[in-house]
Nucleic acid binder design. Structure first.
Lengths: 215, 215
DNA sequence: CTCGCAATGTTAGCTCCTCTAACATATGTT
DNA sequence: AACATATGTTAGAGGAGCTAACATTGCGAG
């Protein structure tokens, strides 16, 4: 194969995330490039400061290009959030590694990762849960959320010695989720900065887990 | 000038008693009219679906009129949210009437009103806490939030037999606020509709209050 | 009461944004 | 090599936020 000419069509490609700009007439993977640009811009300027035009500039394409890949602005955001939620879920799962099953420590670990994701990927978090983009109530997002909640429920069930998701398990899981969810929002909103330290956070999470999981 | 047309304009007051539309050249109280229009539109179309132009149409003025009263769109939203938060706080306070001091029932009552406000005035709630409008981080909003949290802290202190806001009181209050806050978001987001009933809600709230306030 | 000013509206218009239509270019299948 | 399709581009409609300049009204001082 002619490496010298064909592969030169995407020199801007860079594994550190710089596959954003195109070089020739065609981009190579504009869809991924736009999603990445969307992510960066939303993190940077906030969900409502984001514009498709900005994403196009970042990706180095014309403002009409996105519409070959996404129905509209909303679809772009949905695609970006879906990607983020996969990362979120993967992070939560990997946070469980090495922690004995059936212990509240697992619940705490999940909660910790949940909060940290909300802080690290603030934009994704707000988009998913903050109520932007009215019809961001996409079925896929809904399903992704349920799946994430399923991880929590499984751990709660184990802690309570249940083998199935009983109504009581669901109830306790819901309590925990509410707490962690609210905690994420409050920390991200910079309310009560004094609770934001890593040790404070761990302390709060394990405290709550114990209070909710104890009979 | 067509005098007859002016007089033919509708009375322009509606069920809420507020004069949304103007009748003559001057509106009378356009600032209040725009805030009310903003509130309705945000409730109706969601925070991101809201436009100043729509509010102008609702109020019956030109699209430039708001800028005599508000610096920009963001200021309009801040003003509307501030109004809503005053209602929120007043509701929480009146929910306390008749409940013996120092009992967890007071904390539960506040939580219940918190959640119900989030459901009733979804738009205000999302605007205040959902992270819209980057610089909605207005000092006045921040202060209003602190004040509302103060109500919770006072009740928590009473339940714990403290006379001051100790760090431990603050910690417990923060736990409760996180929970109620997250609960509001999840219910509003329609996750877990099975927990949304009034009795379910009361049960959850009192359950949590007990778990967090017990030593 | 009238005059004049400040407050409050209006119109026109700039810039930017979303999204579409029509056209252009690369890709890959036959 | 040739065509069909995918994926870009430019041009432009339509709407939103906001400003400048102009118009109307209410109100206080003389």
């Amino acid at each position: 194969m002619k490496e010298d000419e064909k592969t030169m069509t995407k020199p801007a490609t860079n594994e550190s995330g710089q596959a954003l700009k195109k070089s020739g007439y065609h981009h190579g993977d504009l869809r991924a490039g736009l999603i990445e640009a969307t992510r960066r811009l939303v993190e940077d300027k906030g969900p409502d400061g984001f514009s498709v035009s900005d994403a196009c500039r970042l990706a180095g394409v014309s403002t009409a290009a996105p519409y070959k890949h996404f129905k509209d602005k909303n679809e772009m955001l949905v695609a970006m959030v879906l990607e983020g939620m996969q990362r979120h879920r993967a992070n939560m799962l990997s946070a469980l590694e090495g922690i004995p099953k059936g212990t509240p420590a697992r619940v705490t670990a999940i909660g910790s990762e949940y909060v940290n994701f909300a802080r690290r990927e603030n934009g994704v978090f707000r988009l998913k849960f903050g109520g932007f983009t009215d019809r961001l109530e996409d079925d896929r997002l809904q399903a992704a959320g349920e799946e994430t909640f399923g991880i929590v429920l499984r751990e709660v069930a184990a802690c309570l010695g249940e083998t199935e998701i009983t109504p009581e398990v669901r109830r306790r899981g819901f309590m925990l989720w509410s707490f962690v969810h609210g905690l994420s929002f409050l920390l991200v909103d910079k309310k009560l900065a004094d609770m934001g330290g890593e040790t404070e956070l761990e302390s709060l999470l394990s405290d709550i887990a114990e209070r909710v999981l104890v009979d």
